[in-house]
Design a protein around this nucleic acid. Structure first.
Lengths: 340, 340
DNA sequence: AAGCGGACAGCATACGTATTCAGACGATGC
DNA sequence: GCATCGTCTGAATACGTATGCTGTCCGCTT
């Protein structure tokens, strides 16, 4: 080994007086290597600061011990503002990957990019974690392509049976119902919904459906005029709340499809002279870090991002090992703070 | 090529009636391949959905087209809560990596882990981006080790000449001075500082120094009793503010070393019956997303995370290509909102 | 004493790409 | 008509690891 070069398994072998395959086996813990030999090899490897070359190893074994995490979002074309709920999940995913011996390749994708073919085909990762809302027609086509390619993947989202792949998601309908029941218990009668109600955003749609369920159970009418489309951003929430106000229909509560929307709504409400929760009670969704810091602190439906990240990683690893997996629906939790 | 297997450059070669090396050259844009041949090869490659195997490519070339991003932090042992300012930078880093043709391997590290040897030695990445505050003695030792190993790296932090490596950082002294001058202009006289003032956290220390400069320039005294240690978290900020209040020294302004600290301080102040900014004016640092959403919206010193991320990536790529780099000090910007 | 099985280690090779060197071919100059 | 040059392509090989197969040595059985 020339000085300055990284040591290889051949270098270790020469120093230990064995062959290269024996080094490989010893370091991988193969039982056919005697304990004495293994200890000797391990000592030398440590001393030389030898690390297995992951590229050579991956090439030979055909797997990389790496997962790829793909964010993709409609409303953030510059890539600099990632949905805070997803960022929270990132921490948990990183943590779990580390514990399971996987590396994580992280990427932010435009919806237009070729994310559906790039990662596994080029053997950079053994599997994909998909995190994002978005244009669902296109999304669906790409998911089908992933399946056709035999790519291993899991995704966060709604368990729509029309879309393939193992899904980890939150029980959005239950969450919406919880939010609705909470507001009804607080004596609110005109409950508006800020969020998309179409099939393009199934999570948002299901939260609306949950709200509708709660209204029906309380024999309250469902007024379509109290639903305003909004994407998950503060600006969009602000905008939606202003449009709601402009409609002139009376309301005394808002259920927002995400905390970001709720935060924007607070701004619009305060600006219009309405107090929260005095004039309008407000419930968000996600429990992002900013929710508890906002003024007033936001009542919200918490999604368990820590558990979600853990499940996503573990399910993906199961799929990579060709074991069967089934979708998981996590129960949301109502967190009552000052906004309702 | 057996059906179902991923195509290799040999498969393309056979179909195009050329040899494997020609395929490799054609797809890499080598000029020695005639245009006609290249086009034919490209067409076939596209049709078969062929992608270069990154592992084989990396093994042969000795470089991976991958950068590794290492978060490491003292106060977040569970790995689930990453400093929000760093998360903001992540978006920018991801974006820039994509634009430069690099992948990003993301990892959250305990300070105790062997991050300093793992990544480049195992050839998973061509270089390291280090993002974190922390125990500086240990940090420094590890940086030296990186240099000794010849690992390419850049880090975000303070440009302390005692620490090796190319640094991208914010001009913390200028930021602290801006904050101090702003509060002085607002007529405040008792300006407290919440944040570490020791050498273990150079960023925080420099912000305090900047504040001290502003005070001196205004011929105002510097009272050590108005400095309280705090780490960058909401809980620590809350705690520090309570300790400040308990000291019984009069103050009418707080400069917090980070927005997270400032948000905690708001909670403690409101709890103690003090109004912001009426009784106490408050300035934070970072301009994290929650800063503008807080109540009152936080006056703060903005760090340009978008530019920072871009610089970190570009500098690292320069280092990998063995071109010289020099540290960069980004100017902070005072953002006046409602808390001061 | 011959045969047998288990424990261990080495030989050879495959993974898929990128690069060096050499060769083929046609065109040009004298 | 022969040498020369430039353009393009192919043969061979290296990168470092992991694994199937083979071989050796030893202790044990029959």
């Amino acid at each position: 080994m020339a000085s300055g070069d990284k040591p290889t398994s051949f270098d270790i072998a020469a120093l230990a007086g064995v062959s290269q395959p024996t080094v490989s086996r010893a370091l991988r813990g193969d039982r056919t290597v005697s304990a004495a030999t293994r200890l000797r090899i391990e000592a030398i490897a440590r001393q030389l600061n030898y690390k297995v070359d992951k590229n050579a190893s991956a090439l030979r074994r055909g797997s990389t011990s790496t997962l790829a995490l793909l964010f993709f979002e409609d409303p953030a074309p510059d890539g600099s503002r990632i949905n805070p709920f997803f960022l929270s999940m990132l921490g948990s995913i990183l943590h779990t990957c580390g514990a399971r011996g996987y590396d994580l390749l992280t990427s932010f994708q435009q919806l237009s990019a070729d994310w559906h073919v790039d990662y596994e085909d080029s053997r950079k990762a053994d599997g994909l974690i998909l995190l994002g809302y978005g244009d669902f027609d296109d999304y669906s086509r790409r998911l089908d392509q992933l399946v056709a390619q035999g790519t291993h993947f899991v995704r966060w989202g709604s368990a729509d049976p029309a879309h393939p792949g193992t899904v980890i998601g939150c029980d959005n309908i239950a969450g919406g119902r919880d939010a609705g029941q909470h507001l009804i218990e607080r004596g609110r009668r005109g409950i508006a919904f800020l969020g998309d109600a179409s099939n393009h955003y199934p999570e948002s749609r299901d939260r609306y459906r949950g709200l509708a369920q709660a209204l029906r159970m309380a024999d309250m009418p469902i007024d379509p005029g109290l639903q305003v489309d909004a994407l998950s951003s503060e600006a969009s929430g602000y905008d939606a709340a202003r449009r709601l106000i402009a409609r002139g229909i009376a309301f005394d509560a808002i259920f927002a499809a995400s905390d970001m929307i709720a935060l924007g709504a607070v701004r619009a409400l305060v600006e219009s002279g309405r107090s929260v929760p005095g004039d309008v009670a407000l419930v968000g969704f996600d429990d992002i870090p900013a929710a508890s810091l906002a003024q007033p602190p936001l009542t919200t439906i918490r999604q368990d991002y820590a558990r979600a990240g853990e499940l996503l990683v573990d399910m993906l690893i199961r799929r990579i090992n060709r074991r069967d997996t089934e979708p998981a629906l996590l129960p949301p939790e109502l967190v009552v703070r000052k906004s309702s």
